[in-house]
Design a protein around this nucleic acid. Structure first.
Length: 418
DNA sequence: TCTGGGGTCCTAGGACCC
DNA sequence: TCTGGGGTCCTAGGACCC
């Protein structure tokens, strides 16, 4: 059996843990640059604030309904997530951390356990240990545990836990679930399926394998089998990432290549830091730039460039050099750039590096990067920078409603009066 | 005027190789 | 008039997830 543990309204709940006066009040958490809503408490959902709502369009609604608005505080959410995952790992040797607020547990060898009781105890322990409410779905396959989780979340009388352990329950649950709410069926697929008269998850499982594969590729077919109760999707080992990206939208458009170069360099540095944390080297790097797609009145341009590195590297200096070469090859003057990013891929673990006969990553960088990482860890991000990076002012996102770093900065730890 | 960021997997077409 | 087959790599894009 698989259990899916999913935090309820995770970012909003994190804010609430340290501001309990907000219990029962509408909360919205905004994306970077305070752009759009990425998390909402139940109360905010009830007011009619959709996922992804642009903040500037909903400003009046926020004010009128006294919505408590927060800028995304990823240090806080990441730290709370680690605490929750660490608790969950006590409950099964096989855990897949699926996202910041979700984890699958594989319950192999739990035949003689009362799984409902087990789930209730997990739920209680997480809430006691962190203050975050969670819902738990248990079923014979991953995608069915997603379905069970949805039922647990939707119906409060379940006590936040739902178990699909019979064929009867499986079919009932699938008939209840609208096709667009199936894990792996997004907007585009749902529209196409509705047009075929497929309205529920159950209908989807009744389609022929051949048709599903033709229309939705092997991915859709796997999903169909998994929903039918045949375990097809297994826990993914996501310890090591396959890609690492740093991308940003700019508050103001950028037109000059020097400014863009500074941003790209900073993104490349950030990617290399993440790569070193993963103890890997990369063999490929990609840079992309594009104009603001929302501005239909402006000429649009978007382009990316992949560079295959002549040798594996995780040195900030080297990755910045390659990123700049890539940028220069795709930059066209005359456009207003709104967004850019650096992606790295094709990783190898640091202990499996094949040396190149002619050219290798500068061996001196290894020690240098260690020192830089150590200094930045201790004194704050970006304290030590490359000279190509902005020295005068650190680029700032709009973050007007940032809550304190309650769990990761000593000055921000709350004081309790006894 | 303002409308996020970081991932995954799959497919298709063109250029090129032998 | 007739003009192969089997690959790889790269670029781009589409779909999905949270």
């Amino acid at each position: 059996m698989f259990a899916l543990i999913d935090c309820n309204n995770f970012y909003a709940s994190c804010e609430r843990v340290f501001a309990p006066n907000l219990n029962g009040k509408p909360i919205v958490v905004l994306s970077n640059n305070d752009g759009c809503a990425i998390a909402r408490s139940n109360e905010a959902k009830a007011i009619g604030i959709p996922m992804g709502a642009p903040a500037f369009e909903f400003k009046d609604l926020f004010v009128n309904h006294k919505v408590h608005v927060f800028s995304a505080n990823f240090s806080l959410y990441g730290n709370m997530s680690n605490r929750i995952m660490s608790i969950l790992s006590e409950y099964s040797p096989e855990v897949e951390i699926y996202s910041i607020d979700e984890a699958f547990l594989k319950l192999k060898g739990f035949e003689y356990f009362n799984l409902l009781d087990y789930a209730y105890s997990i739920r209680k322990r997480v809430t006691q240990g962190t203050g975050i409410p969670v819902s738990i779905g248990i079923a014979p396959t991953k995608s069915l545990s997603k379905v069970a989780n949805r039922i647990a979340k939707k119906y409060t009388q379940t006590g936040g836990v739902f178990l699909i352990d019979t064929e009867e329950k499986r079919i009932k649950a699938l008939k209840w679930l609208a096709i667009e709410d199936v894990w792996g069926i997004g907007r585009k697929y749902a529209t196409r399926l509705r047009a075929q008269g497929v309205n529920t998850a159950y209908d989807f499982t009744q389609l022929s394998d051949a048709w599903v594969k033709k229309e939705f590729s092997i991915v859709g077919l796997r999903l169909k089998r998994d929903l039918s109760g045949i375990p097809t999707l297994d826990l993914d080992d996501v310890q090591a990432k396959k890609n690492i990206a740093t991308t940003r939208s700019f508050e103001k458009n950028i037109t000059k290549i020097e400014d863009l170069k500074e941003r790209i360099a900073t993104f490349a540095v950030s990617c290399s830091e993440k790569l070193r944390k993963q103890k890997s080297y990369c063999k490929m790097l990609m840079v992309f730039i594009h104009t603001n797609g929302f501005r239909k009145d402006l000429p649009q341009y978007s382009r990316s460039r992949v560079i295959k590195l002549p040798f594996p590297s995780n040195s900030s200096i080297e990755l910045v050099e390659f990123a700049c070469i890539a940028l220069e090859s795709i930059f066209i003057a005359g456009y207003s750039y709104k967004k850019a990013g650096v992606l790295i891929m094709d990783f190898i673990p640091e202990n499996q590096i094949q040396l190149n006969f002619f050219q290798n990553s500068n061996p001196k960088h290894e020690g240098l990067m260690k020192v830089i990482d150590k200094l930045n860890n201790r004194f704050g991000q970006q304290k030590v920078r490359l000279s190509i990076q902005d020295q005068k002012r650190v680029w700032k996102m709009k973050q007007e409603k940032l809550s304190p770093l309650y769990t990761t900065r000593i000055e921000d730890v709350i004081t309790i009066q006894v």
